[in-house]
Design a protein around this nucleic acid. Structure first.
Lengths: 104, 104
DNA sequence: CCGTATCCTCTGCGATACTG
DNA sequence: CAGTATCGCAGAGGATACGG
């Protein structure tokens, strides 16, 4: 709908990474599927609403996919798509950088 | 001052990249010093205030440094610090990713 | 267990105008 | 040319409560 002027492709990747909880969600998914409650337990300082909101955003962007199982209680899992997996090398560098400069 | 709970070092790097114009500013600095007006000319969709604001933020975070020359008209240049240069590999991957998925 | 609906706060962003 | 000062707004982020 709305056309954005951008200087270079960098900005498009930046937009994904700019949302506060997307990075950590993708990171937790690097080894395979994760359940909703596990995100809740493992992500400090967030809350359920924010996590679900970001999960939906990531689905829209086709970075992750949802798997629902019709059991009781309800069970839902998320996995990375190829597009999502392609982000992992970036996240790994971000992790190293964070360790290098911000962890004593 | 304010202690933040975080899940992993990733989040600290994420915080830098989350600001809208930092990434493109650092990117323009990858080949050496850049003058204020050149940022203005080369960054589409932004404005002077935002750029200066982000430049100051990057100085606080010690990712760039300022060089002022006392001439008329005034001349100012910015350069990457080591900490800033260490971010370049990440930006390169972000650039490739952006090209791969968002440029036809 | 999973997700939605409100409501409210705060700040990032942008436009504009002005100073050295 | 470089930088500051105002003002305003939209939307991200967060707390809480409810529904399937």
């Amino acid at each position: 709908m709305e056309e954005k002027i951008y200087t270079c492709p960098l900005e498009l990747t930046q937009k994904i990474l700019s949302k506060k909880w997307t990075v950590i969600i993708l990171w937790l998914l690097r080894h395979g599927k994760v359940r909703t409650k596990d995100f809740k337990n493992q992500i400090k300082g967030s809350n359920e609403k924010m996590i679900i909101e970001h999960l939906n955003y990531l689905i829209e962007e086709k970075l992750i996919e949802k798997r629902e199982y019709d059991v009781y209680p309800k069970k839902t899992e998320y996995v990375l798509t190829e597009k999502g997996k392609d982000l992992l090398p970036i996240l790994e560098l971000m992790q190293s950088y964070g360790k290098k400069y911000y962890v004593k």
